[in-house]
Amino acid sequence: MIQPSSRLQADRLTLSYGGTEIVGGLSFEVPPGMITAVVGSNGCGKSTLLRGLARLLRPSAGAVLLDGKAIDRMPTREVARHLGLLPQAPSAPEGLTVGDLVARGRQPHQSWLRQWSPEDEDVVAQALCWTDMLDSADRRLEDLSGGQRQRAWISMALAQGTDLLLLDEPTTYLDLAHAVDVLDLVERLRDDHGRTVVMVLHDLNLAARYADVLVAMKDGRILAQGHPGDILTSELLFEVFGLSARLIEDPVSGRPLVVPLGGSRAARRPAPA
C-alpha cells in the first residue's frame, strides 16, 4: 500500500502581524488521515499558524503548500474547495437557523443560478446527520447549547466537502461534557469519513487524549511533534508551558494524563514521572 502523502505543508513559513514576527521559519507536514493537535501557551503562535495554513494570513516569508502549490497564489474559492476552517469563536447574525448556517458551507460550490441544488441538499443533510443535528436544522443557533452550536458550525465546515479541516480551539467556552462530545465527533470524522483534522486546543489532556500527532509550539517554533505517548514528558511540559506536572497513564485511553503539581511547588523542577 502506498503511504498517502501530506496534502498541506508549511515550508519555512514565517507569519507576522504588523511587522512583528509570530511564527518564524516553520516547516511542518500535516499528517494525512490523522488528528493533529497544536498546543502551546498563550501567544506561542499556534492560532497564527492555523490562520496561516488556512490562508487567512499571507506569509511574510516561506509558503503554505496545498498539493504542492503555494496557497496564497491560488484563488480563494479553489482553496475553499479543499480546506475547511472553523474560526475561533465564530459569530452569526441573531435568528440564523442551523440549516441556513450549514447551507452556507456550500458556497464554494455554488454559482449565481445554483443556490440549492439537489447535491447541495444531499451534502448538507449528510453533514447534519454526521453531527446529529438534522433534527435541529430549523432551530435558531442562539436557542442551542454551546456544544450543539459548535456541532452546527462544524457541520458548516463539513458541508464544504473538504478532506482537510482546520479547527481553531473548537472546545473553547464549552464545559467538559460538551468538549468531549465535539472531540468524539472529530474522531468519527477521521475514522468513518477519512477527514484530516488539524486543531488548536487549549486543554492538554484533551489534546493528549484525542490527537494522533501532538505539535508543541513555543515562540513561533515547533519544539516537539509526534504521538502524545512518545513526546509528552514533564520536561517538555516545563519547557513549553513553564508547568511543573507529573504524567500518569490515563486509565481509559492509556494516553498520558497531565497532573499539574501547582501551588508553592510550581517553581521547582518536578521529579521525573
Binding site: R51, L56, A80, L85, P87, P90, A92, G105, Q107, P108
Partner: peptide, 11 residues
C-alpha cells in the same frame, strides 16, 4: 454576516 474569517474560508 458570519465574519471575515469565515467568509474567506467559504471562498
Amino acid at each position: 454576516q458570519l465574519g471575515y474569517d469565515t467568509a474567506r474560508s467559504l471562498g
